[in-house]
Design a protein around this nucleic acid. Sequence first.
DNA 1: TCGCGCCGATCACTTATAATGATCGGGCGA
DNA 2: TCGCCCGATCATTATAAGTGATCGGCGCGA
Lengths: 296, 296
Amino acid sequence: MHLQSLRLLLAVDDTGSFSAAATRLNTVQSNVTAHIKKLEAELGVRLVDRKGTVRLTSAGRALADDAERLLTIHDAAVARFRGRPADSGRLRIGAMETTLALRLPPVLAAFHAAHPGVDIALQTGPTADLVADLLEGRLDGAFICDAVPGAALYQVPAFRETLVLVSRDRLTALPPAHQLLTTAFLVFRQGCGYRHRTERLLASLGVTAVRMFEFGTLDGILGCVAAGMGYAVLPRAVVEAHRLRFDIQTLPLPPDIGVVDTLFAAPEPGTWSPALTAFAGALDQGTLAPDTAVAS
Amino acid sequence: MHLQSLRLLLAVDDTGSFSAAATRLNTVQSNVTAHIKKLEAELGVRLVDRKGTVRLTSAGRALADDAERLLTIHDAAVARFRGRPADSGRLRIGAMETTLALRLPPVLAAFHAAHPGVDIALQTGPTADLVADLLEGRLDGAFICDAVPGAALYQVPAFRETLVLVSRDRLTALPPAHQLLTTAFLVFRQGCGYRHRTERLLASLGVTAVRMFEFGTLDGILGCVAAGMGYAVLPRAVVEAHRLRFDIQTLPLPPDIGVVDTLFAAPEPGTWSPALTAFAGALDQGTLAPDTAVAS
DNA sequence: TCGCGCCGATCACTTATAATGATCGGGCGA
DNA sequence: TCGCCCGATCATTATAAGTGATCGGCGCGA
């Protein structure tokens, strides 16, 4: 059964004429006849009564009802891809813990307000895991730390974070290498972009061997820093948001290490679902959270 | 967009392989490739990721969701025609007042119990109107009085009625012609089959001119008979059902005039909707109301 | 009652598209 | 590294869609 046949059937019902239906759908009368006959043969039922005036039989009317629903769904699906981004579908988004906590709430709220029909599924994890999930199709898009070189991924800057060195005692400058060797660094587990930066920072200071304690949660890191267990490297905005709860100090880092872009990553644009297209488009135009977005 | 393309897309998603999808749907791998490529070209989006393992893109997944709904509706529609009579659709049934009141309640109740998804619309009127509505497609089927000769209608006996002469005073035989001339006959409005029978009865008695009062309702006729206004010709069962409310007498009529079949009429069987097919089938098999059905 | 015109059926034909089978090349595992 | 499996591509065939001309029936108006 071809959708075009159903379209012709509805046109015949509407116009009450094969010729008029043909004209409306830019074809010829004999073609309409052939389509209707094919439908009738396929279903083993007469659909159109041609005696006297042309009118659908009860079977034809029943099929026309189904046809209407069928074509509605079909046209909506096509419009979703070709026309304006539609308001439906699922969107699986991944993000780092810090991004989700700090940056995403307004973004997601704004997107949901603009596209209330899209179901959003969120997942958190370190950048490396998110990238793996993206590449293996378990996520539609993800907010990651720093660009992933060599991966066939669309990547666009979304937020800019300023990293600071977090400590219990106030510092006026980066501690010397010998002092860093005697303390620990509290980091997220393997795969987190911020941990990567921390290692780059230490390397730039000539420190290669340092104790690293892995944590799964932000609260764990901040709490242990406040207890004097060691240092941490985190986005300034995240630390500020928790300043009231922990007695900690921050020290800015040099820009080459301290400025980190959070990127929105997704598979190649040609593969995007309408929902993902809408999300990326909104991010790109900065309509979601202009104050935190990175100027492109 | 062809439904077959969507079917192939779902098969590719299921099996994770073009070749396997082809095998499952009894075609060849190159054909699957062509269908998917056509879909992708039509929507301007890559639907299947062939790098490494075959997997749907987010766009492909979104389309697959629509495809599933689309094919479900389509397959259900086809099954409704080709397979068992489905439990959905609309059924517009017409009947005479007397039939609706007396015979149809158990029939409709049984059908509705067997096919709860079918919406039933009832309409009453004299046989002539019902036939006209049938022929002009405003009804799917109707219960009519006596066969309609010459009409291109499927007609099958449904109920057998015994007509009686209804009067205020007890009669032992049909009144002589001269007496009939002085009283009136109370009949339904033009087009009712029972009125037709009444006229045949009078003609057989040699009475050609008699006063006829037209009524729209059964209660009106019975009330006026009870008041001595005249005679009426009605199904015995109808009169019995109202015996408690009206003080009236009945006299059997000769079988050639007194026995009337109520027929179920519909357009030619080849044009029936699934719901109508189910209804006619149930009537034909006597599964709806075996005690009142006419043996065929 | 008789044309006249409109409409759908049919047919021969053209065009488009679906399906097929063979072949090629690339990625992955042994 | 080799062999194997899988998808892309291509030439070809098969099938279906679309077209235009023509026929016949029915209704309408003269």
